[in-house]
Amino acid sequence: MNNKVFDYLLLLGDSSMILGHRLSELCGHGPNLETDIALTNISLDLFGQVRNYFQYAAKLKGEEITEDKIAFLRYPNEYRNVLLVEQPNTDFAYIIARQFLFDAYHLPLMEALSNSQDETIAAVAHKSIKEVRYHHRFSSEWMKRLGDGTEESHQRMQDAVDYLWPYVGELFEETPLEAEMKEQGIGADLAALKKQYHENVKAVMEEASMQIPETPFSHSGGKKGIHSEHMGFILADLQYMQRAYPDMSW
Protein backbone atom coordinates (compact mmCIF):
# COMPACT_ATOMS: atom_id res chain seq x y z
CA MET A 1 0.00 0.00 0.00
CA ASN A 2 2.79 2.42 0.90
CA ASN A 3 4.21 1.98 -2.58
CA LYS A 4 0.91 3.08 -4.10
CA VAL A 5 0.74 6.14 -1.86
CA PHE A 6 4.36 6.88 -2.80
CA ASP A 7 3.43 6.82 -6.50
CA TYR A 8 0.38 8.99 -5.84
CA LEU A 9 2.51 11.59 -4.04
CA LEU A 10 4.79 11.73 -7.08
CA LEU A 11 1.80 12.17 -9.38
CA LEU A 12 0.58 15.08 -7.24
CA GLY A 13 3.99 16.60 -6.67
CA ASP A 14 5.30 16.39 -10.23
CA SER A 15 2.64 18.66 -11.74
CA SER A 16 3.26 21.29 -9.09
CA MET A 17 7.03 20.98 -9.47
CA ILE A 18 7.12 21.32 -13.24
CA LEU A 19 4.71 24.27 -13.18
CA GLY A 20 6.76 25.80 -10.37
CA HIS A 21 9.86 25.39 -12.53
CA ARG A 22 8.18 27.00 -15.55
CA LEU A 23 7.22 29.97 -13.39
CA SER A 24 10.70 30.18 -11.90
CA GLU A 25 12.05 30.71 -15.44
CA LEU A 26 10.20 34.02 -15.35
CA CYS A 27 12.09 35.35 -12.33
CA GLY A 28 13.36 38.73 -13.49
CA HIS A 29 11.54 38.38 -16.82
CA GLY A 30 7.94 39.20 -15.87
CA PRO A 31 6.19 41.84 -17.98
CA ASN A 32 6.32 44.25 -15.04
CA LEU A 33 7.48 44.20 -11.44
CA GLU A 34 4.17 43.23 -9.83
CA THR A 35 3.47 40.27 -12.12
CA ASP A 36 7.10 39.18 -11.90
CA ILE A 37 6.82 39.07 -8.12
CA ALA A 38 3.40 37.39 -8.26
CA LEU A 39 4.50 34.63 -10.62
CA THR A 40 7.63 33.85 -8.64
CA ASN A 41 5.60 33.88 -5.42
CA ILE A 42 3.26 31.32 -6.95
CA SER A 43 6.30 29.31 -8.00
CA LEU A 44 7.58 29.39 -4.42
CA ASP A 45 4.22 28.22 -3.04
CA LEU A 46 4.21 25.33 -5.50
CA PHE A 47 7.76 24.30 -4.56
CA GLY A 48 6.80 24.43 -0.90
CA GLN A 49 3.90 22.11 -1.56
CA VAL A 50 6.13 19.80 -3.59
CA ARG A 51 8.61 19.59 -0.73
CA ASN A 52 5.78 18.54 1.57
CA TYR A 53 4.74 15.76 -0.81
CA PHE A 54 8.28 14.57 -1.48
CA GLN A 55 9.43 14.70 2.14
CA TYR A 56 6.51 12.47 3.01
CA ALA A 57 7.21 10.21 0.02
CA ALA A 58 10.84 9.88 1.13
CA LYS A 59 9.70 8.97 4.64
CA LEU A 60 7.42 6.24 3.29
CA LYS A 61 10.22 4.78 1.19
CA GLY A 62 12.87 4.93 3.88
CA GLU A 63 16.15 3.43 2.67
CA GLU A 64 18.37 6.06 1.10
CA ILE A 65 15.61 8.03 -0.58
CA THR A 66 15.53 11.79 0.03
CA GLU A 67 13.28 14.56 -1.26
CA ASP A 68 16.11 15.77 -3.50
CA LYS A 69 16.61 12.35 -5.04
CA ILE A 70 12.91 12.16 -5.83
CA ALA A 71 12.87 15.64 -7.30
CA PHE A 72 16.09 15.58 -9.28
CA LEU A 73 17.27 12.06 -9.99
CA ARG A 74 14.55 10.48 -12.09
CA TYR A 75 14.46 9.91 -15.85
CA PRO A 76 11.88 11.77 -17.99
CA ASN A 77 9.54 8.75 -18.25
CA GLU A 78 9.46 8.50 -14.45
CA TYR A 79 7.87 11.93 -14.03
CA ARG A 80 4.07 11.88 -13.81
CA ASN A 81 3.12 15.52 -14.34
CA VAL A 82 0.33 16.44 -16.75
CA LEU A 83 1.38 17.80 -20.14
CA LEU A 84 -0.32 21.15 -19.53
CA VAL A 85 2.28 22.31 -17.00
CA GLU A 86 5.30 21.61 -19.21
CA GLN A 87 4.05 23.89 -21.99
CA PRO A 88 6.45 26.81 -22.52
CA ASN A 89 6.19 30.47 -21.47
CA THR A 90 5.34 31.52 -25.02
CA ASP A 91 4.05 34.93 -23.93
CA PHE A 92 2.15 36.41 -21.01
CA ALA A 93 -1.22 35.24 -22.37
CA TYR A 94 0.02 31.63 -22.46
CA ILE A 95 1.44 31.95 -18.96
CA ILE A 96 -1.90 33.21 -17.62
CA ALA A 97 -3.98 30.68 -19.58
CA ARG A 98 -1.80 27.78 -18.40
CA GLN A 99 -1.98 29.06 -14.84
CA PHE A 100 -5.73 29.57 -14.87
CA LEU A 101 -6.47 26.19 -16.49
CA PHE A 102 -4.31 24.57 -13.80
CA ASP A 103 -5.51 26.65 -10.82
CA ALA A 104 -9.16 25.91 -11.63
CA TYR A 105 -8.25 22.23 -11.25
CA HIS A 106 -5.74 22.60 -8.41
CA LEU A 107 -8.12 24.40 -6.04
CA PRO A 108 -10.95 21.80 -6.00
CA LEU A 109 -8.29 19.06 -5.99
CA MET A 110 -6.79 20.47 -2.77
CA GLU A 111 -10.27 20.90 -1.27
CA ALA A 112 -11.04 17.25 -2.03
CA LEU A 113 -7.69 16.02 -0.70
CA SER A 114 -8.08 17.96 2.53
CA ASN A 115 -10.59 15.19 3.38
CA SER A 116 -8.15 12.40 2.49
CA GLN A 117 -7.99 9.35 4.75
CA ASP A 118 -4.23 9.82 4.68
CA GLU A 119 -3.52 12.30 7.45
CA THR A 120 -0.39 13.78 5.92
CA ILE A 121 -1.92 14.27 2.48
CA ALA A 122 -4.92 15.92 4.16
CA ALA A 123 -2.64 18.27 6.11
CA VAL A 124 -0.57 19.22 3.04
CA ALA A 125 -3.74 19.85 1.01
CA HIS A 126 -5.36 21.83 3.79
CA LYS A 127 -2.29 24.03 4.01
CA SER A 128 -2.21 24.43 0.22
CA ILE A 129 -5.86 25.49 -0.22
CA LYS A 130 -5.21 28.93 1.20
CA GLU A 131 -2.29 29.50 -1.15
CA VAL A 132 -3.97 28.08 -4.24
CA ARG A 133 -6.96 30.33 -3.62
CA TYR A 134 -4.65 33.33 -4.12
CA HIS A 135 -3.20 31.77 -7.29
CA HIS A 136 -6.67 31.17 -8.69
CA ARG A 137 -7.75 34.71 -7.90
CA PHE A 138 -4.65 36.12 -9.58
CA SER A 139 -4.99 34.09 -12.79
CA SER A 140 -8.79 34.63 -13.00
CA GLU A 141 -8.35 38.38 -12.74
CA TRP A 142 -5.75 38.45 -15.50
CA MET A 143 -7.96 36.27 -17.70
CA LYS A 144 -10.71 38.88 -17.32
CA ARG A 145 -8.42 41.88 -17.68
CA LEU A 146 -6.86 40.62 -20.91
CA GLY A 147 -9.86 38.75 -22.33
CA ASP A 148 -12.07 41.75 -21.77
CA GLY A 149 -9.37 44.31 -22.59
CA THR A 150 -8.42 45.60 -26.01
CA GLU A 151 -9.03 43.80 -29.27
CA GLU A 152 -5.37 42.80 -29.32
CA SER A 153 -5.27 41.49 -25.74
CA HIS A 154 -8.55 39.64 -26.27
CA GLN A 155 -7.28 37.91 -29.40
CA ARG A 156 -3.99 36.91 -27.82
CA MET A 157 -5.69 35.58 -24.70
CA GLN A 158 -8.15 33.61 -26.82
CA ASP A 159 -5.30 32.20 -28.97
CA ALA A 160 -3.51 31.02 -25.84
CA VAL A 161 -6.61 29.31 -24.44
CA ASP A 162 -7.33 27.72 -27.84
CA TYR A 163 -3.80 26.34 -27.93
CA LEU A 164 -3.81 25.00 -24.37
CA TRP A 165 -7.37 23.71 -24.23
CA PRO A 166 -6.52 20.25 -25.67
CA TYR A 167 -4.34 19.71 -22.57
CA VAL A 168 -7.28 20.08 -20.18
CA GLY A 169 -8.75 16.63 -20.82
CA GLU A 170 -5.76 14.88 -19.30
CA LEU A 171 -6.35 16.52 -15.93
CA PHE A 172 -9.48 14.38 -15.52
CA GLU A 173 -8.31 11.18 -17.16
CA GLU A 174 -8.33 8.69 -14.33
CA THR A 175 -5.32 6.39 -14.23
CA PRO A 176 -5.60 2.99 -12.48
CA LEU A 177 -3.55 4.46 -9.61
CA GLU A 178 -5.93 7.40 -9.17
CA ALA A 179 -8.92 5.03 -9.30
CA GLU A 180 -7.41 2.92 -6.55
CA MET A 181 -6.52 5.93 -4.40
CA LYS A 182 -10.07 7.23 -4.79
CA GLU A 183 -11.51 3.88 -3.69
CA GLN A 184 -9.23 3.85 -0.65
CA GLY A 185 -10.49 7.30 0.32
CA ILE A 186 -6.96 8.65 -0.07
CA GLY A 187 -7.21 10.27 -3.49
CA ALA A 188 -9.66 12.62 -5.16
CA ASP A 189 -12.62 11.72 -7.35
CA LEU A 190 -11.67 13.32 -10.67
CA ALA A 191 -15.16 12.99 -12.14
CA ALA A 192 -16.55 15.14 -9.34
CA LEU A 193 -13.80 17.73 -9.84
CA LYS A 194 -14.46 17.87 -13.56
CA LYS A 195 -17.96 19.22 -13.13
CA GLN A 196 -16.78 21.90 -10.73
CA TYR A 197 -13.92 22.74 -13.09
CA HIS A 198 -16.06 23.35 -16.13
CA GLU A 199 -18.54 25.47 -14.19
CA ASN A 200 -15.77 27.68 -12.88
CA VAL A 201 -13.97 27.95 -16.23
CA LYS A 202 -17.23 28.79 -17.97
CA ALA A 203 -18.05 31.55 -15.48
CA VAL A 204 -14.60 33.18 -15.73
CA MET A 205 -14.43 32.86 -19.53
CA GLU A 206 -17.86 34.41 -19.91
CA GLU A 207 -16.89 37.33 -17.74
CA ALA A 208 -13.69 37.61 -19.79
CA SER A 209 -15.74 37.73 -23.02
CA MET A 210 -13.95 34.62 -24.23
CA GLN A 211 -15.09 31.48 -26.01
CA ILE A 212 -14.53 27.99 -24.66
CA PRO A 213 -12.89 26.10 -27.54
CA GLU A 214 -14.79 23.19 -28.99
CA THR A 215 -11.89 20.94 -29.89
CA PRO A 216 -12.75 17.28 -29.31
CA PHE A 217 -9.07 16.34 -29.45
CA SER A 218 -7.20 15.83 -26.22
CA HIS A 219 -3.49 15.30 -25.62
CA SER A 220 -2.51 12.82 -22.97
CA GLY A 221 0.47 10.85 -21.75
CA GLY A 222 2.11 12.87 -18.98
CA LYS A 223 0.55 10.87 -16.17
CA LYS A 224 1.92 7.71 -17.79
CA GLY A 225 5.37 9.18 -18.22
CA ILE A 226 5.05 9.97 -21.92
CA HIS A 227 6.00 13.64 -22.21
CA SER A 228 6.18 16.35 -24.83
CA GLU A 229 9.44 17.47 -26.44
CA HIS A 230 9.73 20.20 -23.78
CA MET A 231 10.30 17.84 -20.87
CA GLY A 232 13.90 16.95 -21.70
CA PHE A 233 14.90 20.61 -21.77
CA ILE A 234 13.12 21.28 -18.49
CA LEU A 235 14.88 18.37 -16.78
CA ALA A 236 18.26 19.34 -18.22
CA ASP A 237 17.87 22.65 -16.42
CA LEU A 238 16.27 21.28 -13.30
CA GLN A 239 18.67 18.40 -12.78
CA TYR A 240 21.94 20.01 -13.80
CA MET A 241 23.32 20.65 -10.31
CA GLN A 242 22.44 17.23 -8.90
CA ARG A 243 23.77 15.42 -11.98
CA ALA A 244 26.98 17.45 -12.12
CA TYR A 245 27.58 17.41 -8.34
CA PRO A 246 25.78 14.35 -6.94
CA ASP A 247 24.37 14.81 -3.43
CA MET A 248 25.33 18.48 -3.35
CA SER A 249 23.30 20.63 -0.99
CA TRP A 250 23.03 24.37 -0.46
Binding site: A38, L44, D45
Partner: peptide
Amino acid sequence: MVSQFGSTACKALFRCNDCLEPFDYFKCLK
Protein backbone atom coordinates in the same frame (compact mmCIF):
# COMPACT_ATOMS: atom_id res chain seq x y z
CA MET B 1 -3.62 47.60 -3.49
CA VAL B 2 -0.89 47.54 -6.13
CA SER B 3 -0.33 43.79 -6.12
CA GLN B 4 -1.76 40.94 -4.08
CA PHE B 5 1.71 39.41 -4.07
CA GLY B 6 4.40 41.40 -2.29
CA SER B 7 8.06 41.11 -1.39
CA THR B 8 7.42 37.80 0.40
CA ALA B 9 4.66 35.19 0.11
CA CYS B 10 2.86 36.51 3.17
CA LYS B 11 2.59 40.13 2.03
CA ALA B 12 0.61 42.20 -0.48
CA LEU B 13 1.83 45.54 -1.84
CA PHE B 14 -0.21 48.69 -1.17
CA ARG B 15 0.20 52.37 -1.97
CA CYS B 16 -1.18 55.35 -0.10
CA ASN B 17 -3.09 57.79 -2.29
CA ASP B 18 -2.44 60.64 0.14
CA CYS B 19 1.24 60.46 1.05
CA LEU B 20 2.03 58.35 -2.07
CA GLU B 21 4.27 55.98 -0.09
CA PRO B 22 4.19 52.26 -0.89
CA PHE B 23 3.82 49.87 2.05
CA ASP B 24 3.42 46.15 2.73
CA TYR B 25 0.24 44.58 4.04
CA PHE B 26 0.40 41.25 5.86
CA LYS B 27 -2.25 39.15 4.13
CA CYS B 28 -4.88 37.45 6.25
CA LEU B 29 -4.52 33.67 6.12
CA LYS B 30 -7.21 31.47 7.61
